[in-house]
Each structure stands twice: as C-alpha cells, then as structure tokens.
Design a protein around this nucleic acid. Sequence first.
DNA 1: TAGATTGTTAATCGATTAACAATC
DNA 2: TAGATTGTTAATCGATTAACAATC
Lengths: 215, 215
Amino acid sequence: MPGKEISRQVVRRLPRYYRFLTDLEAQGIEKISSGKLAALMGLTASQIRQDLNCFGGFGQQGYGYSISKLRQEIAKILGLEEGTTAIIVGAGNIGRGLASYAQFAQKGLRLVGVFDKNPALAGVKVGGLAVLPSDQMASFCAANHPDVAILCLDSDAAKEVASLLISLGITGFINFSHYDILRDHPEAMVENVHIGDSMMTMAYQISRRKSDQTP
Amino acid sequence: MPGKEISRQVVRRLPRYYRFLTDLEAQGIEKISSGKLAALMGLTASQIRQDLNCFGGFGQQGYGYSISKLRQEIAKILGLEEGTTAIIVGAGNIGRGLASYAQFAQKGLRLVGVFDKNPALAGVKVGGLAVLPSDQMASFCAANHPDVAILCLDSDAAKEVASLLISLGITGFINFSHYDILRDHPEAMVENVHIGDSMMTMAYQISRRKSDQTP
DNA sequence: TAGATTGTTAATCGATTAACAATC
DNA sequence: TAGATTGTTAATCGATTAACAATC
C-alpha cells in the first residue's frame, strides 16, 4: 500500500517525540498517556494522537503508550537504524563544525566522507575523517554510494555540486546554501538549513520589540 | 497602533524575499510584478501580495513593485540596519563555526562577544574576537547590553545560561540546544535551530524512499 | 465491571489561493 | 484612455483541536 501522504509538519515533530521518549525511558518510566506527554511537550493530546496514528495504533485504550515500545516504533519510522550514509561537501567553517559533531549516528546518519575543493585542506582530519579533494567525489560515490550529501557551500558551488552528485546517485541533500535544489531537481529530497534566516528573523523580533516599547 | 499580529510563517519568508530582491537589484532590474516574482521564487502572486500587505502597500497598481524601494522596505522591517548585537555562548564546534561566519552583519546581527566556560579556550581568537571566560558574561553584559545570545551549548548548560542572561537583560536567543527556553521564559524571543532534527527527517525521507522502492 | 484513554470522526481555526474592484 | 497590476475581500484548503464511541 502506498500509505496516505504524511504532512511535513508531522514529520518535523517526530524527532522531538523521539527525544522526549528517550528521556522518559532513561528515567525508567514505563508508560505515558497522550495527555501527560502533551503537558510535558507543550502540545495538545489530540495532536499527539493524530500524529502517531499517521503511522499506526501504538497505544492501548485505557492504558496509554508504552514508552519503550513507542520509542522503538519512532526510531523505526525515522529509519535511525538503517545505516544511512552521508558525506559533507565543503570543509569551511560550517562544514568542519558539522563534521566534528559527535552525534551523527544518533541522528540517523553515518558520516563517511568530507570533501573540499581546496587542495590545501586535503588530508586534514576533521571529525575523524581526512578531507578528500573534490575531484575524488565521483570515484568515492561509485565505490561507496552514500545516500545523503550535506552541502556546506556557497550557492554557485552548491548548484554545480548538486548536479554532479545527483548524477552519481545521491538522492538526499541537507543544504546550507541558498541554492534552490528542488527547482532544478524536483526528484531530490532536500532539507534546507538557513541559519542566516534565523538571524534575520531574530533581528526582526528584536527591532519590533524595541519599536513597540517606544510608541 | 499595535498593528495586527504578523504570523510566524510570513516573517520566515521575509529573508527570502530580501535575498531575491537583493539579487534582482544587483542585476540592475528596476521593477517587478508579484506574478513575475512569484514565478521566480516558486510562490503564488497572491501570497506575495498578502505577505507584503501585512506591512504596507509597497506596490503601484498597473506597474508592480520598485525593486530597490521594496528591498529597502524589507531591510527596514527586518531591522537589518539597527545594529542589533549578539554574543555567542559556547565555543565548541558549532560556536566556533558560527563565530567565523563572515556574514553576521548582513544578517542583521553584529557579533560582539564569544564566551566559553573552558578556561583553556580563553583568549583564542575566533571570527576576529578573543574568547572570553564565562564568568565575565555578567560584567560584559552590564557594560555592553547585547540584544541576543546564540546558545551553542548542551541542554543543561543552555538552561543555566539562559536564566542568567535573561537576568542580565538579554531578550533574544538563537538556540542550538534542545532546551525549551520559552517554557521557562515565555517573555523571551527564541529562534530554535535543530540541525540534528534535519538529519533525522532526512534519514526518514531516505528510509521511506528505499522502502517505497521495494514494495 | 468501571474508569481511563485510545483511535477516529467532526468542528474549528488559520493560512493559502482565487477573484475582483480600485487605480495607476 | 486601455491595459496592467495592485490591495483586499471572499473561497478554499489543510492543519489543529474537540468530541466521543470503541475498548482495554
């Protein structure tokens, strides 16, 4: 069965459910009701039940949800144990910062390569991996078929690299650039991360608060 | 006038409008209609007009929008030229990566301090600033009253630091941790950035595509 | 069994899209 | 003026919330 389409907003809430359930399990708690979990997470009980029922009936009437079972179910839904592999392209500030991020595996991705076009960086170790020159991407992908590329590049480079990587079989992108991958490659899966946009919306909020205070 | 409340989703689109308008202006184009801009950005003309009219009537019937005027208006709305100041707390991988991010000012924030509790990092230069020990945060804030703190910390540290910073007069947070600032401090302004969540939703998409292909 | 709590259907709310009169 | 395009009101769509019968 194709399964009804899951809305993006539901999927975006799954990691947070997973996190809370992991915490609760670590505390040794066995079960929880949608009402209690809602209070804990600042959601409504309805929303939690609706969200979970997109994927199946994981609860038990009159009882609630088994925390460890639900945590496992969500891990499975998220595909955290499928060994999805990722490469980082661009070993600048963001790229290196991310490469050193210790929790890749816990987030469902296994980092298997870091590339940079600057030959001076080749061989430098970041996050336990030696940076490879970009001209080795094709052979690397042919040999290892990573699933995901994390693009820590400017827009122009991202555009070029995305095309290349798609031709090499990569289907998923975590995109830190402003290049609109989906426009050129609608079949790709894309998560955009625009930290600069968060800075701007923060500047907006601060500026608005200031002007509100001076009416 | 208090002005009608602007929805979060409208605000989140403003940086993208700003970016496209900046590009168009750099190309020397003078005017654009909502229809053309919509085609360029992959939105509907209706949405663009609705979004802009939250803030004022910036267009002209029968003509469209002046690109340079609209760009300036959005810069003003976002408060990009108000010199909002920010500190980074936590000079780990993410903190250092961000501190070196060259475009702070273009995103409406001016980085004025970087702090870390590890004394070994004190004095190390990142992004042109020397890391300060965390015990100097109070005196620094008293002297410089930064507007925003960028928390590049784990949840426990973030909780502690957020309380302290709010008592020191900071009202805005860009939060890279999973600590829920608004729960304890509903008056704060918060932008959460959860890169790990993006990794998980990417793992979800990859895993779903794989299972869809094997029915 | 009785109480609790789910799964699911219906109602509400808000955001997006469409339509069109106003007007440059 | 006539054509184009906005600003704005109305219609649609989708997501969230509420309600409740099913059931453990």
